[in-house]
Design a protein around this nucleic acid. Structure first.
Length: 430
RNA sequence: GGAGAGGUGGCAGAGUGGUCGAAUGUACCUGACUCGAAAUCAGGCGUAGCGUUAUACGCUACCGAGGGUUCGAAUCCCUCCCUCUCCGCCA
């Protein structure tokens, strides 16, 4: 959520910056709502003030046993008008809130202006693509050849966009997640957390999935007591439960930065992706991810983003996978993000780079929605900055390992760093 | 699932329908004392919104959430959520 003060003081400036990401801010409507809000709020507060002082007088008069009928008649009139203005004020503020919650974050100054993916900037390539002297297979062919990847059974159990892993492949998948967690906790200073996979609407609102992107989520309805209805949502990323740990909290300054890592399943409806990436494990309704989350002092967030990106890259380096880092342009960054770097891993069978991690700084955008604060050196509560990034998407990393470490006979050499997690096994073969 | 007890400032914890944004303690800040500190004493110290650009002033709202009664609600009524204790069931 953007700071409403900023919209009031520099509406055109905000509109211009949002325009770089292709968002049209209805400045006329905002202005009109604000004018009405201001008038009605002032009137309401004036009436409340009169009612309060009158009520106080009534109390004093009654204590002395005096007659109060005159003053009570007067305050009744105030009450009548108050009833209408209070309702109007609540409605106006709700309208403003809805509008405000629908506004995306402003891209950071460093973000290149662009319309789409095509305008993203490649920052660097790290490592080199493996060279094969035979026709490469994709991960589906490799996985099925090993008898460890089964989409038909997954389709029977659930439907499209699910997978079943078996045997060595299932273990390799687990090994990847363990390796990532251990690296981030032992070497990068993150605290591992285990969190709920079902969250409430307030949490989804806090990180920005709601109210705008409900169609991307799996909703789990539940009936509470009489008439009380509260949905759960399956998390689309660990970012949601982990970041919301600090919702409505005031973190002591000396505890910053907070650095958490969580390994969770992620659930996405992929409502807008019909027909995209239908083959293989690239785009699933359910996948595993190791997620890095940081809550930091505002002054520290640019440096923290660079570090977090480095932590994610380290996993690929240790696995010996070739990748590139891309700086997303203003037209391609996510709704809540101020800056985003994508890490794209080399997939030889597709002869291209595919996103395997997305590292973002949200600045105070999520913190403002969540009222996630810290106590600054002056002792006053101030909004935190939040960041997160995949470190990494486990399913896609499995795909990358299969395709990059494949041998002529369809077997897979296991990267050295994973072997301790595989009981010392060096190769996956049928 | 059954029975009971609770939810109030950073934390702990009082609170009679009116003078309660809320006692008290603690934490924190300032000052006095001290070479300095501790202890002690005095004062200050919630969040948000509006007027208003403002660490100053005024007003408003906020005592789990929402609704109701009332001139007036932390306090009374209703609904919901959450926490704790005991019993039952369960991994």
């Amino acid at each position: 959520m953007l700071d409403i003060q900023l919209l009031r003081s520099d509406l055109e400036g905000v509109a211009a910056r949002l325009a770089t990401r292709g968002f049209v801010l209805d400045t006329a409507r905002f202005h009109e709502l604000e004018v009405r809000r201001k008038a009605i709020q002032m009137r309401t507060q004036e009436l409340q003030s009169r009612r309060n002082s009158a009520s106080k007088l009534i109390g004093q008069a009654k204590a002395k046993g005096e007659d109060t009928t005159a003053i009570m008649a007067e305050v009744a009139l105030v009450g009548d008008e108050l009833k209408t203005t209070e309702v109007q004020l609540v409605e106006l503020q709700a309208e403003l809130q809805i509008m405000l919650e629908g506004l995306p974050n402003m891209p950071h100054e460093s973000v290149p202006v662009g319309a789409s993916e095509a305008d993203n900037q490649e920052l660097r390539r790290v490592g080199s693509a493996p060279v094969f002297d035979f026709a490469v297979k994709d991960h589906v062919e490799l996985g099925e050849g090993l008898g460890g990847l089964d989409f038909e059974t997954a389709a029977k159990i659930s439907g499209a966009r699910f997978s079943v892993l078996k045997g060595g492949l299932a273990r390799l998948h687990r090994a990847l997640a363990q390796f990532m967690l251990d690296t981030h906790t032992d070497q990068h200073g993150y605290t591992e957390v285990y969190v709920p996979y079902l969250v409430n609407a307030a949490s989804m609102r806090g990180t920005g999935q709601l109210p705008k992107f409900e169609e991307d989520l799996f909703r789990v309805p539940r009936q509470m007591g009489e008439g009380g209805e509260q949905n759960f949502y399956l998390i689309p990323t660990a970012e949601v439960p982990v970041t919301n740990m600090v919702r409505d909290e005031i973190v002591p300054l000396e505890q910053l930065p907070l650095k958490f890592v969580a390994h969770t399943p992620c659930f996405r409806s992929e409502a807008g992706s019909a027909g995209r990436d239908t083959r293989g494990m690239i785009r699933q309704h359910q996948f595993e991810k190791v997620e890095l989350v940081q809550m930091v002092h505002p002054d520290e967030s640019p440096a923290a983003l660079e570090q977090l990106l480095g932590h994610a890259e380290m996993i690929l380096q240790k696995l010996g996978l070739h990748y590139r880092v891309v700086r997303l342009c203003s037209g391609d960054i996510g709704f809540s993000s101020a800056i985003t770097y994508d890490i794209e891993v080399w997939l030889p069978a597709q002869d291209t780079y595919r996103e395997i991690s997305s590292c973002s700084s949200f600045e105070a955008f999520q913190a403002r929605r969540m009222q996630a604060r810290f106590r600054n050196s002056a002792g006053k509560p101030e909004l935190l900055h939040t960041l997160n990034g995949s470190g990494l998407a486990v399913g896609r990393t499995l795909v990358a390992v299969l395709e990059n470490y494949q041998q002529t006979d369809g077997s897979i050499v296991i990267p050295e760093v994973l072997r301790p997690y595989m009981g010392g096994l060096e190769k996956l073969a049928r």
